[in-house]
């Protein structure tokens, strides 16, 4: 099985960088970007298979970004990563999103979700 291409989008640089490194150590082809513009550029340049998306970011909310990305590349599976509750009355996670993981992350749980996402891509 080839390495899964993962893109982390989070304005919390330290978090994203560290997570990216840890996933690399676990054999995921991981890249981290820290704002919305970079995220869109990165996806257009080299679309990932799985996207780890922060729910709240300056400039554009995670959900808006999610919709934008899905428009030009619906094949990307998105896992939301949030410091808030996943079930939130105001900003409901879209149903089509693959999963939602709460910060602080349990690395094993996260890798499990990424693997699942990868599998669902292969099935398609």
């Amino acid at each position: 099985m080839s390495w899964t291409k993962v893109l982390i989008v989070d304005d919390e640089v330290e978090f994203a960088a560290a997570l990216s490194e840890r996933l690399l150590l676990r054999d995921y082809d991981t890249k981290a970007v820290y704002n919305v513009d970079d995220a869109i550029a990165a996806i257009k340049q080299d679309p990932p298979e799985v996207l780890l998306l922060d729910l709240k970011m300056p400039g554009m909310s995670g959900i808006e970004l999610y919709r934008t990305i899905k428009e030009f590349n619906p094949s990307i599976e998105v896992i939301f990563v949030t410091g808030q509750a996943c079930q939130n009355g105001d900003e409901t996670i879209p149903r089509e999103a693959f999963a939602c993981v709460m910060k602080p992350i349990d690395i094993d749980e996260l890798t499990k979700q990424i693997d699942k996402a990868k599998q669902s891509i292969i099935k398609k």
Binding site: E14, F15, Q84, P104
Partner: peptide, 25 residues
Amino acid sequence: AAGIAHEINNPLAVINEKAGLMKDI
């Protein structure tokens, strides 16, 4: 409580990842 939890979660996530990375290394 929710507000506090949210604010704490972000730095906590950083600590978690840094420590996790240290552990990995």
